[in-house]
C-alpha cells in the first residue's frame, strides 16, 4: 500500500532538485530504504520505470541501499540520497554538493 504516493513524492523531489541545478536528464538516482520501511528494494525497482515516465528521471537507473538497522531514526522511511545528471560535468572536476535539511514535518 501507498508505494505509488511515495514514489510520486520522490519523483517530484528529483524534478525539483534537477530544476534547481539546471539538470535536464537524470542518469541515476540513489535511494536508502530503512529497515522498517513498508517498501522493499524490489517494490521500488518494479515501479521506478513507470513512476518516472515523463519526468527528468525517465529511463534513469536506480541504486538502492537497504538498511538493516532497526534503530536508525529514519528506519521507517525511504530517503532520496543523491542523483547523478546524465550529461557529463564539464567543470573543474570538483562537483558541487548540495545538502538540504530533511523536512521537519512528520511522515504520515
Amino acid at each position: 500500500m501507498h508505494e505509488e504516493a511515495l514514489l510520486r513524492d520522490l519523483v517530484r523531489k528529483v524534478e525539483e532538485v534537477a530544476r534547481a541545478h539546471r539538470v535536464e536528464r537524470v542518469e541515476r538516482v540513489r535511494l536508502w530504504v530503512g529497515a522498517l520501511s513498508h517498501l522493499t528494494e524490489g517494490t521500488l525497482r518494479a515501479r521506478w520505470s513507470m513512476a518516472t515516465i515523463g519526468s527528468v528521471a525517465e529511463g534513469s537507473g536506480l541504486e538502492v541501499e537497504s538498511s538493516l538497522d532497526v534503530h536508525d531514526p529514519r528506519a521507517q522511511g525511504v530517503v532520496l540520497q543523491s542523483l547523478t545528471p546524465r550529461s557529463p560535468w564539464k567543470g573543474s572536476g570538483h562537483p558541487p554538493s548540495v545538502r538540504e535539511k530533511p523536512p521537519v514535518s512528520p511522515s504520515s
Partner: peptide, 20 residues
C-alpha cells in the same frame, strides 16, 4: 563513476503526500 561525473547530494526523506 567517471571522474567527470557529478553527483548531487539530496538527503530527502520521502513522504506519502496523498493518494489522490
Amino acid at each position: 563513476m567517471t571522474e567527470s561525473e557529478r553527483t548531487i547530494t539530496v538527503d530527502y526523506l520521502a513522504r506519502v503526500e496523498g493518494e489522490g
